[in-house]
Simulated assay, not measured.
Amino acid sequence: MEWKQHFDTPKKVAALIIMFFVMFTLGAINYSKGVILPRAQEDLGFGYNDIGIMMGIYYTGFFLSSLFGGYISDKRGIRFMMAGGTIIMIIGLTGTGFSNNFAIFALFYAIVGIGLGTMTIGSNAIVPPIFPQKQGLMFNVMMGVYGIGAFIAPLLLNYLFGVAVSWRTIYIVLGVTLILFAFYTLKAPMPKQTVEKEALDLKQFFGMLKNRQFVLLMLLLTLYVGAEAGFASWLPAYLEGIQLEEARSKGALYLSIFFAVFTIGRLLGGIIVDRYGEKRVIFVFASLAILTFSFAKFGPDSIAILYGVSGAFFSVIFPTAIALATSLFKNAGSALGFLYTAAGLGAMFSTWLVGYMMEFVGVRAGFNLPLFFLIGVVLCTFFIKDQVKEVKRNQEEAS
């Protein structure tokens, strides 16, 4: 009966359609890159470093639109963001599908990132005015839909490629399909945005940089997102590069398994964190991610499925680190804004750097980078844990 309350007005129905469509699309596009780009590489004749540059450009577009999208949404409204972001996506996807060289492909791929980031900001802005008492629930459900998109996309793409559908056709058809969604965003009832965002306070940021705990959390999230983005974006290309048997189909399968258990882990992670605490969970799960990644990479091909299984251990690190930040800082909102920015930078640079290393030092050596990033996460957790104990001790002495 409780869920019926979420469908009791046209605005709520429209909000759910938009939110779920955008998050499904975000998950699907974000984690179909690793399956599609090797096909584009063959077609257009560019190397691993070029793929890395394109991934970095994509995340740069997404990052910039996310950074400034909130301000634009406040000024112009949710409908402007949704319709505008969808139109940008249409241009980016169709342009990518018709690209005939690296420069044009990279340009339109950046436009895809900008459009998707804009749509994401718009869909997230719908939640507070429509579901003011259920924001936590709705954001968690949206992340679940994101995971479903990331799970389905690699399997669907693998099937389509198996029946000789080209990557160009997929992007063009998706772009044309979004025209219908653009019309829907123009006609659907939209809420007025009620939450005002604070301007970016650089003085506050530089002040927080003096806090070692804050710097460590920024570094931890940068390294973690670098590991996740580098791993998920490059796994299929890596498996092809080492000539694993049936590499293309297995790459798509392992990615789908990764995001299936990743989504389940996100849903169950809160229970584990409540029982054992944030710092211990980050340390243990990052360590288990290192172990499963290492066994899959350096072990026999017969256990390569552990690439997919590792998603269970990747899953809880990011939200747990965010929860840790909110528990440690009085001005949690500002801290989270800066931490999300650091996470975006991690995705931007890691996807490029993995490609660069695979191009110039070898495929096997280059794909070690996500593993090194995870080791960095574990090291950060050691220091965060020690400092938190000291903070609590000081608080007890002061009281």
Rank of each mutant, 00 (worst) to 15 (best):
V215Y: 05
L244W: 09
E246V: 08
Q213E: 09
I242D: 06
M190I: 13
A229G: 07
T185D: 04
L255T: 08
Q204H: 13
S233C: 02
A199K: 13
E198M: 10
G241M: 05
L223T: 07
L235N: 05
G241K: 03
Y171K: 00
L239H: 08
K192D: 11
K210N: 12
F258L: 08
S249D: 09
K250G: 01
D201H: 12
F205Y: 15
T177I: 15
M218H: 02
A247P: 00
G226D: 05
K210M: 11
P191I: 12
A260S: 12
A199P: 00
R212Y: 07
I179T: 14
Y224T: 04
D201Q: 07
V176S: 06
F214S: 01
T263C: 09
K210D: 01
S249V: 13
L180F: 15
A260M: 12
F206D: 01
T169G: 01
L219C: 09
K203V: 11
Q213M: 12
Y254W: 08
F214P: 02
G251T: 11
I179N: 06
T222C: 13
I242E: 04
K210A: 15
G251F: 11
Y224W: 10
V176G: 07
L200P: 00
T222D: 02
L235M: 13
E240D: 12
Y238C: 07
S233V: 09
F183D: 04
I179Q: 03
G226R: 07
E198C: 03
Y238N: 05
E228P: 00
R212F: 10
L178R: 05
L235W: 07
L255Q: 08
L178T: 08
R168D: 12
L186V: 11
A232R: 01
E246F: 10
F231I: 03
Y224Q: 07
L235G: 06
S256N: 05
L209H: 06
A199S: 15
G226I: 11
A199W: 03
W234R: 02
M190A: 09
F206K: 04
V261I: 13
E245Y: 10
R168S: 13
F206A: 08
L244A: 11
R168P: 01
F262H: 10
L217M: 14
P236T: 10
F258Y: 13
I170L: 11
M208R: 11
L209G: 02
V173P: 01
L202P: 00
A260V: 02
Q243Y: 11
L209W: 09
Y224P: 00
D201C: 06
P191F: 11
G226W: 10
K197I: 14
G251W: 11
G230D: 01
Y254Q: 02
P189V: 10
V195P: 00
S256Y: 04
Y224K: 04
L219G: 04
Y238K: 04
K250E: 03
M218C: 15
A232H: 01
G226K: 06
E245C: 00
A247H: 05
V176L: 15
T185C: 14
A199H: 13
L180R: 01
L209E: 03
F181P: 10
L239M: 12
L178P: 00
L235H: 05
A182G: 09
E228D: 02
R212Q: 08
I179L: 15
A232P: 00
M190K: 05
F183K: 10
T222E: 05
G207M: 05
G230F: 07
E228T: 05
Y224E: 07
A229R: 01
M208S: 11
F206H: 06
Q204K: 14
L209I: 14
L223H: 09
